[in-house]
Amino acid sequence: MNKTANFQLTQWEKTDRIMMEDFNRDNAAIDAALKSSADKVAALQTALASCGNCKIVYGTYTGNGKYGRENPNKLTFNGDPLFVIIKGSIGSAPTFGIQAMRGWDIAYTDATDFSTICYLTWGEHSLSWYNSQSSTDQFNESGSVYPYIALFATQE
């Protein structure tokens, strides 16, 4: 009498005598395996339901040419984003941009020169930033349009 590789279920050949004990043992093993799988699926569904989801908000803003501590830029959201990315103005050469994670108070804005910094302030439903060197480094050149994307954790 042969057995299956995974659950050792009986595999009868034509010459084997079929025994009730073998049949009942196989059914009990199948039942236990199905119950274990169902329990694991239910546990994963419960865990996944508590993880929530990710909401993505995107848009643009137009720069006004100002910069510095007294002239911060500000994006306001419907909720508190966990991560915000602001890129260089539309139509300009690709730039590193501002990558801001909630809790960070600075963001480096140049991939080759880590001395270019925007100072970040996280408010209720908002992100503000400034750079003390130039409106270009603050991503706020007058008339330039800047795209942004914000990621939010949601509970559904």
Rank of each mutant, 00 (worst) to 15 (best):
F152R: 12
T154E: 15
I86G: 04
M20A: 14
K40Y: 07
I56F: 03
F152Q: 11
Q155F: 08
Y130H: 15
I90P: 01
C51T: 11
M20L: 14
Q155L: 13
S89M: 02
Y67H: 15
V145R: 11
V57L: 04
L127F: 11
V145W: 00
N131Q: 07
W122G: 06
I117A: 00
K35A: 15
G88R: 02
N2E: 14
K74P: 01
Q99A: 12
E156W: 03
K66H: 04
K55P: 01
G52V: 04
L151T: 07
G59C: 08
L82M: 14
S36M: 09
G97L: 03
A5D: 08
I106S: 01
A32S: 13
R25F: 00
V84H: 07
A93L: 09
D80M: 10
K35M: 10
G143S: 09
V84I: 15
D31S: 13
N6F: 06
N78F: 02
G123L: 08
E70A: 15
G88I: 01
Q138L: 02
W129M: 05
S144H: 12
S36Q: 14
P94D: 12
M101E: 13
C118A: 10
G65K: 09
R102L: 12
T112F: 12
L34D: 09
T4H: 02
A47C: 01
D80L: 04
E156Q: 13
D22R: 04
K87H: 07
L127E: 07
L127D: 08
S128A: 15
S50H: 00
L82Q: 15
S37R: 08
N2G: 00
P72G: 06
A5T: 03
G97N: 04
A100M: 06
I18R: 14
G143V: 04
S128V: 03
K14V: 10
T46P: 01
L151Q: 09
D137K: 14
G59H: 09
N71T: 03
S37K: 09
A29G: 00
Y130F: 15
T112A: 13
N78G: 04
Q138F: 03
S36Y: 02
G143P: 09
W12S: 07
I149W: 06
